[in-house]
């Protein structure tokens, strides 16, 4: 039986999460990955974790909390928890105004700077890459801009996320039409291979795009891990800060500052801002987008 049906069906009573259990789980999640779950999202945590309780046959969320803390199952379960608490709403070519900034000059200025130094190396970090739509979009943009010259440059994209499950999905590079809803048709034709039909139609990203991207499990709350990441010319971290409280946002932005090379650029979500978070970056205003620069 491959379906989850028989796993989820149970005659046990429905469990609810009390405030103490919520507090314990919230603190635990914050400590492990910096994601802060506000009170009004308690129902979401309860709904999403209920299947984990059913799966293990646990009676209360308190038991689940102990299970997470235990050596026996906690380490593997932590990944499942990360999958549950992160939502993966994304698509190719999301927030095109920001991508236009990259296409219309920003990338070229970074390349020019590198050429002045006699280098053809550029490193881009896609932080919180979810199922891979953002890093693949960036690589497609590089192909579109550079064409045949792409092979003359050593441009690497490192894509990271907290959840191993979404990274596995990203590495497969297989998408539904929904993920491509904001992607120009010509781009789909050039960089994707359709497979299957009807409801089962999927699009596979072409290997020439895939080969420039490496996927890694990265916890933005792990400063030691972040310090070991190769230093970047450009960081994309869009729609990730919304999961964090102010203190965590400050820590993450501070780590991005340390990772960026002088003159590097930081892209955050179009509805996110560094106001009251950090003054270290210089905001550069473009039509419909702001990009943050680390002064050289």
């Amino acid at each position: 039986m491959t379906s989850s049906f028989t796993k989820s069906i149970t005659l046990r009573k429905q469990v609810t999460m009390d405030d103490v259990e919520f507090g314990h789980l919230r603190d635990f999640i914050y400590e492990k990955c910096g994601i802060y779950i506000p009170d009004n999202r308690k129902y979401l945590l309860e709904n999403r974790l209920l299947n984990r309780l059913r799966f293990f046959g646990l009676r209360t969320f308190g038991e689940y909390f102990y299970f997470l803390k235990s050596d026996q199952g906690g380490k593997t379960e932590l990944q499942a928890l990360f999958e549950v608490i992160t939502t993966n709403e994304t698509s190719f070519y999301r927030n095109p105004a920001q991508l236009k900034v990259l296409e219309n000059g920003l990338l070229k200025s970074v390349m020019d700077e590198q050429l002045k130094k006699g280098s053809r190396d550029i490193h881009i970090w896609s932080a919180g890459c979810s199922t891979g739509e953002e890093p693949y979009t960036l690589e497609i943009i590089l192909h579109e801009i550079l064409n045949a010259q792409r092979s003359l440059w050593n441009i690497t994209i490192m894509a990271g996320d907290l959840s191993e499950a979404v990274l596995a999905s990203a590495a497969r590079g297989e998408y539904t039409e929904y993920a491509l809803r904001t992607t120009p048709k010509a781009i789909i034709a050039r960089y994707f291979t359709p497979i299957g039909n009807g409801r089962y139609r999927r699009y596979l990203i072409n290997p020439e795009i895939k080969k420039h991207i490496s996927f890694h499990q990265i916890n933005l709350n792990d400063r030691a891990q972040l310090r070991n990441i190769r230093r970047s010319h450009i960081i994309f971290c869009r729609n990730v800060l919304i999961y964090f409280d102010e203190a965590m946002k400050k820590r993450v932005i501070s780590s991005f500052y340390d990772n960026l090379l002088p003159g590097g650029y930081l892209f955050i979500g179009h509805s996110e801002s560094l106001h009251n978070i950090s003054r270290v970056f210089k905001p550069i205003h473009y039509p419909s987008a702001i990009v943050y620069r680390k002064e050289g």
């Binding site: 400050k250 501070s254 500052y257 002064e295």
Partner: peptide, 10 residues
């Protein structure tokens, strides 16, 4: 240096 200011501030 803004990065130094930022760290001292925090």
């Amino acid at each position: 240096n803004l990065g130094v200011q930022d760290a001292a501030d925090m």
